[in-house]
Amino acid sequence: MQVKEILRKQIAETILFTKSYPYQDTDSFMENGVIDSMNVIELVLFLEQQFGIQVADHEIIPDNFDSIQQLTKFVHSKQQVAA
């Protein structure tokens, strides 16, 4: 499964409590009310466990965490640094 698919599935099931992710990959989480501050913490923990990356506090910003597209780009950049 690709990073985007894993993220869509995780957010749909654990945050939205649905079977599929109903938004476009570029849609803003904040503008659509998809995640709140507690969900961000859960998402950080998920990213660290699922993808084996470390997320620093200063990286938890909308540029990295406001859409599936931005999250995917962030995960890929962290994976390249770790490699």
Results as ranks from 00 to 15, higher is better:
Gln2Arg: 15
Lys4His: 07
Glu5Met: 06
Ile6His: 09
Ile6Pro: 08
Ile6Glu: 14
Ile6Gly: 08
Arg8His: 09
Arg8Lys: 15
Arg8Tyr: 04
Lys9Asp: 14
Ala12Cys: 05
Glu13Ser: 10
Thr14Ser: 15
Thr14Asn: 15
Ile15His: 04
Leu16Met: 03
Leu16Gly: 03
Leu16Ser: 00
Phe17Arg: 10
Phe17Gly: 05
Phe17Ile: 06
Thr18Cys: 07
Ser20Lys: 14
Ser20Asn: 13
Tyr21Thr: 05
Tyr21Glu: 06
Pro22Ile: 12
Tyr23Leu: 14
Tyr23Glu: 04
Tyr23Phe: 14
Gln24Trp: 12
Gln24Lys: 13
Gln24Cys: 09
Thr26Asp: 15
Asp27Thr: 04
Ser28His: 07
Ser28Phe: 07
Ser28Gln: 06
Ser28Trp: 10
Met30His: 11
Glu31Asp: 13
Asn32Val: 09
Asn32Gln: 14
Asn32Glu: 12
Gly33Ser: 09
Gly33Asp: 02
Ile35Asn: 01
Asp36Trp: 04
Asp36Cys: 04
Met38Trp: 04
Met38Thr: 08
Met38Ser: 11
Val40Arg: 07
Val40Ala: 09
Ile41Phe: 03
Glu42Arg: 15
Glu42Asp: 15
Glu42Gly: 15
Glu42Ser: 15
Glu42Phe: 12
Val44Asp: 07
Leu45Phe: 12
Leu47Ala: 03
Leu47Val: 02
Glu48Arg: 09
Phe51Asp: 00
Phe51Pro: 00
Gln54Lys: 13
Gln54Ala: 11
Val55Trp: 01
Val55Asn: 01
Ala56Asn: 10
Asp57Val: 08
Asp57Met: 13
His58Tyr: 09
His58Arg: 11
His58Ala: 10
Ile60Gly: 10
Ile61Met: 14
Ile61Arg: 11
Ile61Gln: 11
Pro62Phe: 03
Pro62Leu: 09
Asp63Lys: 14
Asn64Tyr: 02
Phe65Gln: 04
Asp66Asn: 15
Asp66Arg: 11
Ser67Lys: 01
Gln70Ser: 12
Gln70Thr: 12
Leu71Ala: 04
Thr72Ala: 06
Thr72Glu: 07
Lys73Asp: 06
Lys73Phe: 00
Phe74Met: 02
Phe74Ser: 00
Phe74Val: 01
Val75Asn: 03
Ser77Asp: 07
Lys78Leu: 04
Lys78Asp: 00
Gln80His: 15
Val81Gln: 08
Val81Thr: 08
Ala82Trp: 11
Ala82Gln: 13
Ala82Asp: 07
Ala82Tyr: 05
Ala83Lys: 07
